[in-house]
Nucleic acid binder design. Structure first.
Lengths: 319, 319
DNA sequence: TTGTATGCGTTATCAT
DNA sequence: ATGATAACGCATACAA
């Protein structure tokens, strides 16, 4: 494996000069430059990037933490991140956590070990205390609305979105409204729960614990939801479903069970994933690719920033 | 940023001793070990992994090339890879290529630059000549049935699968059978095309170019296929669809257009993705997660191996 | 059991 | 414009 010193010897120049032509620095005689280039050519030389990283203290590597890679929500986020990463010559190390803290810790460890320059956590599992502890080692970007002054975030206002969607359903005549979320513990879910409670209070509607369903992530989970609803004495007449995947699963399942949508059950999905368009599902569009792009920019930026993205209700056939 | 030398000074030992306790080597006095540990504790020390990489010439990083991250086929492959990567303490650098050669080259470059130890290419875009050229820099694993003796592969027998599926449809009475694939140029597609031609020949069926549709990857593409079929004078009575995503899109679209499945159109999907089960789609199960695991093992192995995985027809309601 | 010295391949500083 | 040399932080052969 030929190195920069070998090149220097071959071209009859110093390593510094070699380094200069390698990095397109000015102040190098054209003849010598050609000599170096020739040495590079004959030896089929190429840099050992690890040496560069050690010397520079940077890796051009960005960590991205997602719970699942096979979910459109995160795939679209990733798409936005990857787009800008490519443009800025960054590579991505993807951590698929399945919501396990241990996996997320792995990413944090890599930041500490300087193997990645910064870390984007699309959905956090570990405590904020742990996150903050790792802030000295590099930028950490999150997707939540947080007070913490030392880290950047890109998010949507889940409280407002949820509240508005609930009011929308109320105005359509619905009085028995439930919702499906992913994890119960996520901070986004807490905002949603607060919105739900505030909504019930404002409109003097009774609280029905069975109308709240968690662990809804994938297409298949839509089936579980419908099955559970069918067992209820008084089923909800409308559901807010925080993923079009799950909403699509519900629509499919309802067809099998001859449940009419929106007649028997109205559904509002989230994200405006491609499947929502095809299945004509009313949904709340979240600009995931744009969010991904912003996350990347925040990750490589020296400054801390907070960015709220706006969403859009797309009225289709399930309400 | 404290380093190994600082620790040595603080603990009153040599850097070698520090390195020994850091790497859990034997032959180190317990007292000194404690002294080093104490120094590590008070300084909150942690290794600079880049230095380790430079010194060792390895990174514990594995590259994975996929065209899309938001497609279940590749997501499941990735899941299998990620599972074993975690167990073996490897991290993954994911390259999402969108089938662009330039993106794939990026991955190859990283291999050349020793930033990744090996590379798994789940769907190849660049020429084999380019791939072979990079073989000296690390293991490259592919998902095709290849002769090349210097690289490992994990694959399914696309020729046989296609041929058998066509015969299956024939035996069900179908005489106008078409198929949908992703890229026309991929080597897997070539095997399929050969199977199709051989099938037509054997059963003396006419070749109808319009029965072959490419660029079918995602859910939405199912709609395109149905629209195209509806414009045909004599539409196919059955379709082999190389992704359950697309098959699901077709089923959904057919419902909107009152096209009966399997009455008007029979469909066999591929992969046995979760959506196929929910929508009751007849499909050919490919053990993607298992394939992913095998790909990983091949990537870190010193030996070259070829592994054919077997598939299973799952009969459901679309044929 | 421990330490010295050197290698890993590059970049950066400083002098000329 | 060019070069010598010192970082960068760790691993390891060899000596003791």
């Amino acid at each position: 494996m030929t190195n920069i010193r070998d090149l220097a010897k071959m071209a009859g120049v110093s390593v510094t000069t070699v380094s200069r032509v390698l990095n397109h620095h000015p102040y190098v005689n054209e003849e010598k430059r050609q000599a170096v280039l020739e040495a590079i050519r004959v030896t089929n030389y190429h840099k050992n990037i690890n040496a560069v990283h050690l010397s520079k203290g940077k890796t051009q590597l960005l960590g991205v933490v997602i719970p699942f890679s096979d979910h459109p929500y995160f795939a679209l986020l990733l798409k936005g991140i990857a787009k800008l990463a490519f443009d800025h010559n960054y590579k991505l190390v993807v951590f698929q956590t399945d919501y396990l803290v241990s996996r997320e810790m792995e990413a944090l460890q890599m930041l500490k070990h300087k193997q990645i320059d910064a870390l984007i956590i699309c959905s956090r599992t570990s405590d904020m205390a742990i996150i903050e502890e790792h802030l000295p080692y590099g930028a950490i970007v999150l997707c939540e609305n947080l007070e913490e002054k030392r880290l950047s975030t890109t998010f949507v206002n889940h409280y407002k979105i949820f509240f508005d969607a609930l009011v929308y359903l109320y105005n359509k005549g619905h009085r028995r409204i439930g919702y499906c979320i992913g994890r119960k513990s996520g901070s986004n879910s807490q905002h949603r729960e607060r919105a739900y409670r505030d909504f019930l209070k404002k409109y003097k509607l009774p609280h029905h614990p069975f109308y709240i369903m968690d662990e809804c992530f994938h297409f298949e989970d839509g089936e579980k939801v419908i099955n559970r609803i069918m067992e209820l004495d008084t089923a909800p007449s409308a559901l807010l479903v925080t993923s079009d995947q799950v909403a699509a699963g519900m629509v499919t399942c309802c067809q099998n069970h001859n449940i009419s949508i929106p007649g028997d059950l109205a559904i509002i999905g989230f994200d405006n994933e491609p499947i929502a368009k095809m299945m004509n599902i009313t949904t709340i569009e979240i600009p995931l690719v744009e969010m991904g792009k912003n996350l990347f920019l925040q990750a490589i930026s020296k400054d801390v920033s907070k960015k709220e993205m706006s969403v859009k209700l797309i009225e289709r056939a399930t309400v």
